[in-house]
Write a protein that binds this DNA or RNA. Structure first.
Lengths: 233, 233
DNA sequence: GTTAATAAATGTAATTTATACATTAATTTC
DNA sequence: GAAATTAATGTATAAATTACATTTATTAAC
């Protein structure tokens, strides 16, 4: 802090800090985004990421968890800071710095009543309407991050149910990378990491034969991480 | 923004936004960090990252560039957001959210007079004294980022002079990764990317034979980036 | 109960990439 | 011209990635 704090903020002007969540879900074949209608002027009623001001006695992280909880009823969700959006003029109403955070949620787990009550909606990525302020940019940035990150860390699993099939997992990666993958090579690679536990159960919703269900083995993953392991698909 | 702004900040309490720069340099064989003595209470006079409050009409990015300019005289330097430090109690003086940004500079380019005037000092990484608040954590985080990032993007070059030798470049990567590299494999790999231009000049400061100087070919790099290229060492 | 339909599961050979490793070359100083 | 010093270079082996086609398990329809 290079200067005395008295030089700033001694006017009526106030600096606000907000957080906005880019909430991704995955439904069979498509990545989806949860948005709602902004509840404060200016631009009230327009589509917006789900966010909030950070309270004076609240950690920035906690603020993001709080809004996620308020709107979806979910806690203990994968959420990670994306970046700060800090242009002086990004919000016509206030001087507001927003910390973007992206979350990956299991799309069947959220509290439908709560979501409905808050007027929130899931949109397929390609159908997302225009968002207020720089929120469109936030979504683009978050997607980029998701793509990059998914290559080296098994965050994709955060978007799937506890139990999932390999074809499901492959479809998820195909959606993230926007490309077709070869089933044999894909299976070889994910299984080679030894972090998937094959169950004795099949999911028959999408084929007659049924596909075996797997669980992600967090314990083994953590063990491997410590010994310098690098997850890559 | 999920709630009305009136709910917050209507008290005497104010939210401050600051930015702190983790400034790295590289000198022959070691990575160095530029720090100075904090000029505001509390903890005035203790070693601190170089930072400032963000002005009410100033972009967060611009604030970081401003302090870097004030202390080193440098502009157009590689600087990138690291992450937000947002615990409610991270600073005993104020409620202050700080955006960490790390910068890579050519250690011979900075303005020595300015740096001296501000009481700033370069420290070898292993000799950095304790820093105020969470600044030590910021340095650790920035180093992690540098390591990860250097694998896939040629940011290492930002730490070297315009013209550099391959042994210099190798020493830099050895310092970043904290490991010895094989000269033959290293050269093969960096040269394979076709983004280094060999000059007809030698640097003889560190050997009798002298080592050829190279320049980073930014134009070719951008061209390759567009066609899906991925720099990796 | 046989057949048709459907998605799941599997192996191998060829190519590319990464690794390990030791000698010669250029130059200066004595 | 000999000694000292760092720069520069190639090859064989191992590992990882890619491309590619058939069989299997199950249900629904007849």
């Amino acid at each position: 802090m290079a200067e005395d704090v008295k030089d700033f903020y001694s006017r009526e002007d106030k600096m606000y800090v907000a957080t906005d969540c880019i909430i991704f879900g995955f439904d069979e074949a498509k990545i989806k985004l949860l948005i709602f209608k902004r509840r404060v002027e200016p631009l009230k009623g327009q589509w917006s990421l789900i966010g909030s001001f950070v309270r004076i006695d609240e950690d920035v992280d906690s603020a993001a968890q709080r809004v996620l909880m308020e709107i979806t009823g979910l806690e203990n969700v994968f959420m990670e800071e994306l970046k700060t959006y800090g242009s002086a003029n990004r919000d016509p109403g206030y001087r507001c710095v927003s910390i973007g955070q992206y979350a990956l949620i299991r799309i069947n787990d959220y509290d439908r009543e709560l979501v409905e009550k808050h007027g929130a909606h899931w949109y397929d990525l390609e159908d997302v309407p225009d968002l207020v302020l720089d929120h469109g940019q936030m979504v683009n940035d978050a997607l980029e991050r998701l793509k990059r990150k998914a290559r080296f860390q098994p965050i994709g699993f955060e978007l799937l149910p506890e139990k999932f099939t390999l074809p499901q997992l492959q479809k998820l990666y195909e959606a993230i990378y926007q490309t077709k993958l070869d089933a044999r090579n894909f299976r070889k690679k994910v299984l080679s990491h030894n972090v998937l536990e094959k169950l004795d159960e099949k999911d028959k919703t999408s084929s007659r034969r049924g596909a075996f269900l797997y669980k992600f083995d967090h314990k083994n993953y953590r063990r491997l991480l410590k010994s310098g392991f690098n997850f890559e698909i």
